[in-house]
Write a protein that binds this DNA or RNA. Structure first.
Lengths: 256, 256
DNA sequence: ACAAAAGTGTTTTTTATACACCCATGC
DNA sequence: GCATGGGTGTATAAAAAACACTTTTGT
């Protein structure tokens, strides 16, 4: 499990520094990139993650995070964007590296003997707008948004990767303005509030205080446009003002 | 640069799913682990990072972060702990994964043609107690604590890795109790305060408020022992009480 | 008219910040 | 006795939390 670690050091093995002759003991790797792609269905207040059905061994016909192996001349980030481009059509997205899982035997393709190629996975975390995201279902391959609450058993250690991504998402939402990457360009304060409650659970300020706090920060600009959603008073549409937000960057600001 | 990313997706290249025939286009990797090892010299109020002088090409005779290549059957974390054990003798340490740097051409051993082996680096972040850390200088290899303020040009992209590690250290210190892994088992509140100012700069609460806040949290237990350091009133030694801290775990608590 | 959704304001409590002051020791 | 580092308290400002209330729409 990634995260904190407190351990005693093994007793130092008074060994020689790494020399050429040791080359043969080094592991050879293929490097995979797996994306944890989140979106929020504001209509149904559900946090979703994108899963694909595996078309090949190992774990044929298991759901898994969309992933790929890194190609020659391709950076890790390139690979992560390639996965996105293959699975989904979006105009905006937020993407950052998550964690690298690299223990031996995490991939069954690694034969039992220790001379086989190792498979290492660098995971990326992505956030896209649900409404404008168009899934690319190439031929019969399964691809679907799953509510994170009921994801099934996944291939490899992907449940663990997902759990880690979910934790990161919660943190990101609290400490940085990623929310505005998932919402449409203009949104109501209620949309924003729903997003927060959906992802974080409703253990934070009530709507009235949430509202007051955010407006005081001053990086939401009133578009003047009102939109009516069924009964009730129409809501004003706001727009995220990146320039006005700039001064808050890298501050330990929390806007729950 | 690791961190936030907003990008347009490339236009989706309507390609086939990854099949066996593509195996030959995949990159082959050796995986390195590099550790950013910090300690704090409380006597001189300096934040230090451990550097080693490279004994081999590439970057022979450049300072670099201590690192190694991952061996067969060894996990990434194992490799990180092995580096520690080879360079330093300590009783306690904090260690966690930092970031994975994996672009092509980040290592000059990668030949110019794109068919060569790629070198990927998984960095780890470590924190040790300066006073009890004993450096292991195997034969003539250079190894030294450097004040982070004046680290020289390092091998590879290690200056970048260090910068990222430094950022993580500052965050960790603010949001989690790592400080108690670097301090001796018993310490004065001034030791703790010095540590914070050294790492974070003194842009936070004055000593009196710092003190009041921490004591109110209740996870520092008074040992009753007083210690005198030159002139002035003797200070009480405190001990970090992990059990009393437990309820604060995973809370968005900030104790600056 | 009234329910539903949006938006405003007020009160109370808690936390942050600044700073004044007392305490114990070495020299 | 006085400089030095350790420790306590108070007064003020700001932020968080709770919640009552008004406004504007659809039906």
């Amino acid at each position: 499990m990634p995260g904190r670690n407190h351990k005693k050091l093994p007793t130092p093995l008074n060994k020689q520094p790494c020399v050429e002759s040791e080359m043969q003991h080094l592991a050879d790797f293929k490097v995979g990139v797996d994306n944890v792609i989140f979106s929020v269905d504001t209509a149904q207040n559900r946090l979703l993650v994108l899963l694909v059905m595996r078309q090949q061994e190992p774990f044929l016909n298991s759901w898994s995070l969309p992933g790929t192996l890194v190609r020659q001349g391709e950076s890790l980030e390139d690979a992560a964007y390639r996965i996105m481009a293959e699975k989904i059509r979006v105009n905006n997205l937020y993407l950052e590296q998550l964690y690298t899982f690299g223990g031996p035997h995490r991939d069954p393709r690694e034969a039992n003997d220790s001379y086989a190629i190792r498979y290492l996975s660098v995971s990326y975390f992505a956030l896209v707008r649900f409404e404008e995201a168009e899934l690319i279902a190439d031929k019969v391959s399964g691809i679907a948004w799953y509510p994170v609450k009921d994801v099934p058993q996944l291939a490899f250690d992907h449940n663990q990767v997902l759990a880690y991504g979910h934790r990161r998402l919660r943190n990101k939402l609290e400490y940085s303005p990623v929310a505005f990457d998932v919402l449409p360009a203009t949104f109501t304060l209620n949309d924003l509030y729903q997003l927060y409650t959906t992802v974080l659970g409703d253990n934070f300020a009530d709507y009235s205080n949430f509202r007051a706090r955010l407006l005081k920060l001053g990086f939401l600009s009133d578009t003047g446009i009102k939109v009516s959603r069924g009964a009730g008073r129409p809501a004003t549409l706001y727009r995220f003002d990146a320039e006005a937000f700039a001064p808050f960057k890298d501050k330990p600001l929390v806007f729950i």
